[in-house]
Design a protein around this nucleic acid. Structure first.
Lengths: 193, 193, 193, 193
DNA sequence: TATGAATGAGTCTTCATTCAT
DNA sequence: AATGAATGAAGACTCATTCAT
């Protein structure tokens, strides 16, 4: 039964994920989940005690299967600039994607439950990304592809700018051109093109 | 009588502003406002039809008294670098300020009511800031203070990075050092220090 | 001032009448009246203590200027059948008129405030109409225009049938043909045509 | 469990029916029902989303168990006149019954929700009654009990007059004598007595 | 007379959460 | 494990009515 149980939990998580993408975090009610899962009210509570726990679980599941964008790429003999370009293109897609994206719900979640909490995984994620990016830039510099910049600072700057683009896209709206221009600016800081 | 009425409206706006700073946007109820204002339920509705209208009014009031950071500074013979530094310091303060700040509520408001709406003043604000910053950088370049960069692109980059810092501060949390480092990186792109 | 006062009262009554025709009785609020009259809240209460009193006044005003349909007609040497026909045509118009009519509001008013009340003027109105109709039929009989029926009974029957048509029009809806047919039936009871 | 649920729904319907009879349609609030049913606020909404839906359900339940007054009677060899008399007596009782009657609420309901709606079952009911009555009269004519009148027209006339009596009873009030007289008039149109 | 701001009671509706089965 | 009926608290909103000016 433990297996069946696990299956059901997975089903709930997948469904919840979809709903969080559609409605953000705060607007989602247990009823929304129950309806979408075709599960009983009480049944849902057997697995999750509320939307907070549910969203936490959705985030954790994400993390578990998070794929490091660079891990594979960098080890090969691909050019660092190409890897970076690929990464930025991926980010662009995410930034411009209006729905099908957990970023809005995630922002709402952390607004509500504090930047203080220990389990704030966002920070770790961000630092991992900065670290990986930094390494990539380092490699690029050694390859002679990139200018001799402070890799760590450059990586941070890129990440903050990307976050800025993302939040701007979710609030004031951004055009594709705005994103392209900014990404171009970011690349220009590293390499002549 | 219109005067007294106006006073009350102001009182409500100020109180609401405080509450929005404390609780963000979505968690604020009309009852919260009512209690804080020591006003009757019906009384509040005489002035505002709901939290959305209230927050809109708070934002509008902000805008009305918004002071252009550069306007005064630039026209004087202060160095562009000094003006920029001042601006960044101001931003740093805002970014690190945990409460007493409408940014969280504002994000929530635009999450809820769409980046699409015509009355989205965020976009205008952002572009105004980019414009002013761009001008400032231009002046700095002409003064020989700054490198010969693309002023527009540099300004955009700074603004996106600042937004990134702000949202990171509100979600994953940032240390003062992180902010300082990033601001230093931003300055470094313009001037050797 | 008494004159001015009277004018204002008239204005209120006329406006209220229009609103009662539009919305019926129960849905009308003092606010509706206030808004439509462009008068102050308190001002309205100086004249009328609530919608009940207001509607009562509207009804009373109606009564005061109620014109007896037959009074003029009968005294002339018009044929009784023609007068009756005219009356029925007038009734048909009223029955089919969807709006611009107080009947719905009147029904609602008496539903709410009882068929019992002393000031129930409906009964008097009805009996007056039966009386007049009865007289008319009597004359018609004496003229040899109508069959020799019980005038009183015939008059009552016509009035009940008209009320039936009216309420059916307001609830289940009636077609013009249904009304025409019924009116024809009513006439047939009195005269061959 | 569906059974218990159904029982509760029935209980609510019966209670609601009683309340609608007492207070009409418009004055009834969900709270009235809740209090009368000794149920929780939220519990009621599990079954009905508002008073409109509730009243609709009450009407539908009525219709489901509606017994055709004539169906049985006519097929037997009872005299048509007797059947008609029985029907009119039944109607008289209903008309004079002050409370314990849904007619007032029904009128209010249709005032509020339009004579236009597709689901207006009143029209169908009325036409069914006219049809049955018409048949009955036809039979009476063939039996030689009734005058040779236009059965359809006579039936319509009776129904309109009954509706007229009903609404008059609910608004201006009618005496038993008034009803008797009118019913006598209606019979007189068909048969000498 | 006249104003219109203010009140507070009342209704609607939804939600998280529990619990008997 | 699972169900879904039931609860009650909470928030939105409206209205009749009053009252200081």
């Amino acid at each position: 039964m433990g297996e069946k149980s696990e299956q059901k939990k997975q089903l709930i998580l997948e469904t919840a994920r979809r709903i969080f993408m559609e409605k953000g975090y705060k607007d989602v009610t247990m009823k929304d989940i129950v309806d979408a899962c075709q599960i009983s009210r009480g049944g849902l509570y057997l697995y999750f005690s509320g939307t907070q726990e549910l969203f936490r679980a959705v985030l954790d599941a994400d993390e578990a299967e998070a794929d490091d964008v660079f891990s594979g790429a960098v080890s090969e003999d691909a050019m660092a600039a190409d890897v970076l370009l690929l990464f930025l293109k991926e980010q662009k897609k995410e930034i411009l994607r209006r729905k099908d994206d957990l970023s809005l719900a995630t922002y709402e979640y952390y607004f509500a439950h504090g930047a203080s909490q220990e389990e704030n995984s966002l920070r770790g994620k961000f630092e991992d990304a900065v670290g990986a990016l930094s390494q990539l830039i380092e490699i690029g510099i050694q390859n002679g592809e990139f200018y001799e910049v402070d890799a760590q600072a450059a990586a941070s700057n890129i990440m903050f700018a990307l976050e800025g683009l993302r939040i701007c896209a979710r609030t004031m709206g951004v055009t594709e051109k705005m994103v392209d221009d900014e990404l171009y600016t970011l690349m220009s800081g590293l390499v002549a093109d």
